[in-house]
């Protein structure tokens, strides 16, 4: 069970969080080509190694934030509020 560093609350047990998927996805423009929309809705990379992903601290501050995590080892590399750089420093 991972110990997840919430950028607002500090390290907390994984049971307090919900996984939110790839943090690098961006919603296409409303009038974008339907195939781009289909990619956005259905297609996900499955990287082996560091992955920037969204997590939700539902049993804590209810914040969504970005976590960089190694998918092979579950090592947590960094976390940051949405929109702030993941500079590798833990809060």
């Amino acid at each position: 069970m991972m110990l997840i560093p919430c950028p607002f609350c500090g390290p907390r047990s994984q049971v307090e969080f919900t996984y939110g998927g790839d943090a690098t996805l961006r919603r296409p423009a409303g009038d974008a080509d339907p195939s781009r929309w289909a990619d956005y809705v259905y297609l996900r990379d499955n990287p082996c190694g560091p992955h920037d992903e969204l997590w939700y601290h539902g049993a804590g501050c209810r914040s969504w934030f970005v976590l960089r995590r190694d998918t092979r080892t579950h090592d947590i590399i960094a976390s940051a509020p949405v929109g702030e750089p993941l500079d590798g420093t833990r809060p």
Binding site: R27, L54, Y56
Partner: peptide, 8 residues
């Protein structure tokens, strides 16, 4: 709603 307001 929280995700849309905080992330998107």
């Amino acid at each position: 709603l929280e995700r849309l307001l905080q992330v998107d």
